[in-house]
Design a protein around this nucleic acid. Structure first.
Length: 540
RNA sequence: GCCUUCAUAGCUCAGUUGGUUAGAGCGGUUGACUGUUAAUCAAUAGGUCCCUGGUUCGAGUCCAGGUGAGGGCGCCA
């Protein structure tokens, strides 16, 4: 029982229980009874009971005396059976008028049925329609990415998108849980920044009371200030990059998590990254089994996080990438050549199957058999075109990896080639100073390298975390700001952190979209955000 | 910005060496069917073949330019 705002006491109660209690129930004082509906996710606890659920029609199949509604209520999907006998003619006629995405309340008995997703179905005794949906544009079949992106506000209702958003939510909960349980304080870094430290080309400019202001690309420097006050902190907020990056890994607006820890070395930083990542993935594995199943995710690939993450120095990673150094008997270049050969063979096999199925159809078969073969052929052709794209790309990747110049940053394909030789996520550390940011601490005795670390996800997903130990010396920092040709005046407040009790500290940044993409095995980050903002897409 | 593939019904796609009246499935509508899993079966409506120009007796199909999209790369505290 909970007290409502108007001073009444509300009581969660089902219709059936209410009916049982009705005669013996005494109204004493100011009580109000609120009849609550239930949720599909709770079906197991309602087995054998009559309950009401409220939601939408995801799909409908109809026969003379039965209507099967695949019903969704946000908490899950379940089949609801409306039979003529149970609801009577009038309500059955009403049910016939239901279209995809019509909204309604269904009352009925929860019954176990192993064939159903979730293991239960609802045998409906009555229904109440809220709204009959107009013709719904998204059918229960394949659509193109452009069409779906235009219909994002509706696409979110699809089972696959439902699963992704739930996993995204679980990851966010896991992030807060991990940090809160480990002594971190969450801080909110500013979104408006007044200074354009490194030029304005990658920044979104806005008008701040007549002054130019820019949307934040990172909260890290502010996080460092807060870490000097609170010890261990993390930011969790939106960041904005105006780069014209049209790749499956980039968004113009994305959510970033940036922990910063006083008295942490890069070693400790890497330990944290590893423990943190393990926590997140294991939490999803435990709590999102249904969602992972909807996505068809290979669980064993995610379970690989429970191994020790390999830690590879940049110089060794370069050797591995160029094919000069093997990992567990695997050569990066050879693995790519094998992938290429496998793709070519796959194309041949699939082409042969297409021909075989076309011959079957040409022979004259029943409509059902023909349709089955036709849809198979369509699917095969799609798979073939994916493989053909691989055949075009892999040789370029091999070329790029072989000719990789020591001292440069890894490109998207280089990360893919590198991670293919590892089963677990891999950490690359001690990067060349030239390609990394000014605030990274130089490796002791070798100023050509800095104590930075990138976490690369397996299966070709690439960088999801970037971090480093921060430079502590005022003199070195001043020198580096000059070397990077940055405006010293903008960093005066940041340099104060090195003037007043400077300490060793480290931190990292995690892109939420990137980890969602990896966990859900998505081709593109555009599916990771409810309404993604990226180069070439601002609506809906 | 570069490379590459593509643009045909509301959606996903066929459309042969250029040939006369433009094809299927899904979705919509109507009807049939006692348990379906993207149900099935029968019927029905639905088209500026992206745009502009060219070659040709004839262009959805060939050529040139444009526009838009997919994939790869680049850019990328």
């Amino acid at each position: 029982m909970t007290k409502t705002r108007d001073g009444f006491v509300s009581l969660r109660i089902s219709k059936q229980v209410l009916r049982q209690w009705w005669h013996g129930f005494q109204f004493v004082g100011h009580y109000k009874i609120v009849i609550m509906h239930q949720y599909i996710k709770e079906f197991p606890t309602h087995e054998g009971k009559e309950i009401t659920v409220k939601g939408w029609v995801a799909n409908k199949r109809e026969s003379k005396t039965n209507i099967f509604v695949v019903f969704r209520d946000g908490s899950g999907f379940a089949q609801c059976v409306i039979s003529l006998d149970a609801v009577g003619e009038e309500q059955f006629e009403l049910a016939k008028s239901l279209t995809q995405e019509s909204s309604l309340a269904l009352t009925g008995m929860v019954v176990k049925d192993e064939k159903q997703m979730g293991g239960y179905e609802l045998q409906v005794s009555s229904l109440e329609i809220y709204h009959i949906s107009a013709e719904y544009p998204i059918a229960n079949k394949a659509h193109g990415v452009r069409f779906l992106a235009d219909k994002r506000h509706l696409w979110l209702r699809s089972k696959r998108q439902w699963a992704i958003m739930r996993i995204r939510n679980e990851l966010k909960m896991g992030i807060h849980e991990y940090f809160q349980n480990n002594g971190f304080i969450q801080m909110d870094s500013p979104i408006f920044t007044g200074s354009a430290c490194e030029g304005t080309t990658d920044l979104f400019e806005t008008d701040f009371f007549g002054e130019p202001a820019y949307l934040a690309q990172s909260g890290q420097l502010y996080g460092e200030a807060m870490a000097m006050a609170q010890g261990k902190i993390y930011t969790f907020g939106p960041t904005f990059r105006a780069e014209k990056s049209d790749t499956p890994r980039h968004l113009a607006e994305f959510w970033m998590i940036e922990p910063e820890m006083a008295f942490y070395t890069n070693e400790m930083n890497m330990d944290l990254i590893e423990a943190f990542t393990k926590h997140l993935i294991n939490r999803v594995l435990k709590n999102n089994q249904t969602e992972l199943e909807v996505l068809g995710r290979d669980i064993s690939k995610l379970e690989s996080v429970n191994q020790v993450f390999p830690r590879v120095k940049y110089v060794d990673a370069v050797q591995i990438l160029q094919g000069n150094k093997e990992v567990n008997g695997k050569n990066a270049i050879t693995v790519q050549e094998e992938d290429l050969a496998a793709a070519k063979q796959g194309i041949e096999e699939k082409n042969a199957e297409v021909k075989e199925r076309e011959t079957t159809i040409a022979g004259g078969v029943k409509k059902g058999v023909r349709k089955f073969n036709e849809s198979k052929i369509l699917q095969l052709k799609k798979e073939i075109s994916t493989l053909e794209e691989q055949c075009r790309n892999i040789p370029k990747w091999i070329e790029s990896a072989r000719n990789f110049k020591d001292g440069e940053d890894f490109g998207g394909s280089d990360e893919t080639v590198l991670t293919r030789v590892f089963d677990a996520p891999v950490m690359v550390y001690n990067w060349p100073s030239k390609i990394k940011a000014f605030y990274m601490k130089e490796v002791d005795g070798d100023p050509n390298y800095v104590k930075g670390v990138d976490l690369l996800a397996p299966e070709g997903f690439g960088e999801i975390v970037g971090g480093s130990e921060r430079e502590t010396s005022l003199d070195v920092l001043v020198r580096k700001i000059k070397e990077h040709d940055l405006p010293m005046s903008e960093f005066e407040w940041y340099l104060d952190l090195r003037r007043f009790g400077s300490v060793p500290h480290a931190g990292f940044g995690l892109g939420l979209a990137r980890i969602v993409r990896w966990v859900c095995n998505l081709d593109h980050v555009r599916e990771t955000n409810p309404f993604p903002r990226r180069y070439g897409r601002l609506t809906p």
